[in-house]
Design a protein around this nucleic acid. Structure first.
Lengths: 208, 208
DNA sequence: CAAGATATCTTTACGTCGTCCAGATATCGA
DNA sequence: TCGATATCTGGACGACGTAAAGATATCTTG
């Protein structure tokens, strides 16, 4: 390996099949949804035989893990952007809205992310420890808004509570039952704000 | 049909294959998890050929819908019991705890319930309209606790917010990341109470 | 630069899956 | 009683995940 920087980069025959497979999977996911995401379809889309992926992933679950990983990175980025653009007192709400919007705009990817997490019975480690992770951003924002940084248990509870609320809302927001509420309130984002406003954790959810 | 009460009851050869299939599916779900739940396995477990289920269900999704339906009924029952046994001011918390405990004790069934809901892009209709549904119980409890029953939009928002929080928590509570928090707080239920206590919707979440 | 070691990819194959179809069989309605 | 109809079986098809064996390109070492 000439440049062994990312554990295994620059494969031999294809160029970078691992990359190509993840990209192909993401393309299928967006175009045809999660049910169409078979290993064989990914290999087909990447122009390679059905068995080729096994030289880069132990099995299908490992491919899904790789896709999910990219999803978490995208979520991190979306929430970083939202936090940066919000005024200080609206940052927590902005994070919540950004979280749900990401899930709503990438439903198939979001589903893969949590399916993988459930299979591993754990969220990705990087989420709790990587310092620019979405989770840590929520926690840090809590501190910026006045939470006691030394009350670690309480801080973790508050962050987890916010995460639960956002995830629950992300899954519910897709159901038809809530369409009339969205209409009543003038759109999806106002609906999300209204829900967050009912949960004590998101101060100033009612204005921008 | 001698007693055409439930749309189609009492089949011919088997006795009640539809019932037997749903029961077999539930048995597989509990014993081997959701990944083992194939139509063929269900037919096998029920002692019938792989094509037999097609006379009672259009396809696999319809079988899953039937299983999910029973799940919602079980959830209704669990929450009814919890509400009945709680003292008035603790009813809302009791409902939340019962919801999450049901999901935690029947993880495979809970997953089937929400997978089916996502496929239909809607929660079961009966949930919002059936008067003894879990959802309606939450809403009614809000009123009993002082919510204005004429502010229908606000009431729906509050109920939805609570539902989102409970669902989010139900999914998160299975992840390894939160085990040390549960330990710190002395068990799973105290952990759940602590999370609910951070959400404005669950008054008195900190004591029984 | 030669040549074996090694990593990558293809081909073929196996068992399982969801689903369909044709035939057998039991129940129902007249 | 007998035809209609509902229920179940057996066999088949294509797609899936994955394993094994062989072909091929790249790397390493002398």
């Amino acid at each position: 390996m000439r440049e062994s920087q990312t554990a295994e980069s620059r494969p031999y025959h294809h160029g970078d099949l691992r990359r190509a497979l993840v990209d192909a999977a993401r393309r299928i996911l967006e175009a045809e949804g999660p049910t169409a995401l078979s290993l064989r379809a990914v290999a087909r889309e990447a122009g390679v035989s059905p068995a080729a992926p096994y030289h880069h992933f132990k099995d299908k679950a490992e491919l899904l893990d790789a896709i999910a990983d990219e999803g978490w990175q995208m979520l991190d980025a979306a929430m970083a952007k939202a936090k940066a653009e919000a005024e200080p007192r609206g940052k927590l709400t902005a994070l919540g809205i950004a979280y749900v919007c990401f899930a709503r705009e990438n439903p198939a990817l979001y589903r893969v992310m949590y399916d993988a997490a459930r299979d591993n019975e754990a969220l990705p480690d990087q989420m709790q420890h990587g310092d620019d992770s979405a989770y840590c951003k929520v926690r840090d924002t809590m501190i910026e808004l006045g939470a006691d940084p030394t009350a670690t248990v309480d801080l973790e509870l508050a962050t987890t509570a916010a995460w639960c609320a956002a995830h629950g809302l992300a899954e519910m927001a897709g159901f038809k039952q809530f369409e009339h509420l969205k209409q009543e309130l003038g759109g999806e984002v106002p609906f999300l704000r209204a829900i967050f406003a009912h949960l004590g954790l998101f101060p100033h959810a009612s204005h921008d």
